[in-house]
Design a protein around this nucleic acid. Structure first.
Lengths: 109, 109
DNA sequence: ACTATAGTTAACCATACGGTTAAGTATTGA
DNA sequence: TCAATACTTAACCGTATGGTTAACTATAGT
C-alpha cells in the first residue's frame, strides 16, 4: 500500500469536517459564486471565511479565479470523488457482512 | 434546517481525516478485532492508538465490548452512511452539471 | 503470590483549527 | 482623487490533534 492518496484523503475529509465548509460546498454545487456570496449565510467574520476557503482549496475541493476584485469560486470534483470512493469501498464490505448476518438469523431463528 | 446531524458529520469526517483511523476502520471491515490487533500495523505508542479509538468512538464509527482484559471492537455503520450520504447528495449535482456541460459541448462544437 | 499482558489515564509538548480585530492590497465607481 | 468594496494577511487567543513517557487498573497465566 503506502498510499499516495492518504494525504489527499486526510485533507479532503478534514475539510469536510466543518459545517461552514460543507455549507460552502453545498452552495457551490448550485453554481459558481464569489467569496462574499459564499460568506453571506454565515455569521462569522471575513477572515474566518477566508481561512475556510484556504482549507477547501488546499484540500483540492475548490478552485477560484480572480475577476477584478472578486474571486469566482467553483467546485473541483476529483478529491471529493476520492473521498467518496474510500467510503464506498468499505461500505460494500459492511453491507456484505450485514447481509450475511441477516441470512444467518433467518436460517437460524 | 439547523441541522442536528451537522455535529455527527463534523465528528465523522473529522475521524476519517487521519490515515491511522482510516486504517483501523479498514481493518475492522474485515471483522472484529482487539485494540492490540488494530494497533499492530502502526508504529505509534499504545496511548496514541487509544486516543484514535476514542475519536472513532466519539464519532460513532466504532463500538466495543470488554471481554476479560481485551476490548473487542467492531464497526458501526450509521454515521459512516450519513457521511457517505452527504457526499452522495452533492455528487449527483456535480455529475448533472458535468453531464450538462458535455451535452452542451456536443451540441455546440 | 508474582509477573506479563491489555488497555487506559495523566501530564506534557508542538502544531493545527477556528475565531477575533486591525491593518493592508487591489479594484471599482463617483 | 477619494471613498467604498472585495478580499487577504498579521497578530493574537483558546481549544483540539497527535504524539510522547510514566504511571495506573485489571485480567491472565504460571
Amino acid at each position: 500500500m503506502v498510499n499516495y492518496s492518504q494525504r489527499h484523503l486526510d485533507l479532503a475529509f478534514g475539510a469536510l469536517a466543518h459545517p461552514i465548509r460543507r455549507g460552502i460546498l453545498a452552495r457551490l454545487s448550485k453554481g459558481e459564486a464569489t467569496v462574499a456570496e459564499l460568506a453571506r449565510p454565515f455569521k462569522v467574520s471575513a477572515p474566518a471565511i477566508s481561512k475556510h476557503m484556504h482549507i477547501l482549496e488546499q484540500a483540492g475541493l475548490l478552485s477560484r479565479t480572480k475577476h477584478g476584485r472578486e474571486h469566482r469560486c467553483r467546485l473541483e470534483q476529483k478529491r471529493m470523488k476520492e473521498a467518496e470512493a474510500w467510503i464506498e469501498r468499505y461500505r460494500t464490505f459492511w453491507n456484505d457482512r450485514l447481509d450475511a448476518l441477516e441470512r444467518y438469523l433467518k436460517e437460524n431463528p
